[in-house]
């Protein structure tokens, strides 16, 4: 009876060379990447993740965002219709040199993870004026 529609989430593929211990699917969170003069902001949709189950690591310019979902299926109910699946989230981004790595800041609110990456001082756009002699 459970009917299945196209799955909206994109499954994370071959993102890790090693296998995970936790079973279940892993998804790529839908992400916006915004650049302003002073920073780069990454906003990733990770609904259903507990704040404490989010892991952000930066290793060799690779920023990894990871979130584990609490799989709580409602008690003695039967799944009658399904349009989305739940699973963990994992995504990696390679950062440029231009990031002030010590000042990276992250917050999680309403299922959205926002990571703010301040640009390094030397990379901020500088206005160069051309003078004539």
């Amino acid at each position: 009876m459970a009917e299945k529609k196209s799955i909206q989430k994109q499954e994370s593929q071959a993102i890790e060379q090693s296998e995970r211990i936790r079973s279940g699917k892993v998804f790529l969170p839908a992400t916006d990447i915004i650049e302003t003069d002073n920073e780069i902001i990454i906003r990733a949709d990770m609904p259903g993740v507990n704040e404490k189950a989010i892991d952000i690591t930066l290793d060799n310019k690779v920023l990894t965002i990871q979130g584990c979902v609490d799989q709580d299926t409602p008690g003695d109910y039967q799944l009658a219709y399904s349009e989305y699946e739940t699973g963990d989230y994992l995504r990696k981004f390679t950062l440029s040199d231009a990031i002030e790595q010590e000042k990276i800041n992250a917050r999680y609110k309403e299922g959205v993870l926002e990571v703010t990456l301040p640009k390094a001082e030397k990379m901020k756009a500088r206005q160069i004026t051309v003078t004539s002699e």
Partner: peptide, 15 residues
């Protein structure tokens, strides 16, 4: 494929 997507995706559980 986008046109098939209704937002938000829902799951329905029944008893």
């Amino acid at each position: 494929p986008e046109t098939q997507r209704a937002f938000p995706a829902v799951n329905i559980w029944t008893k």
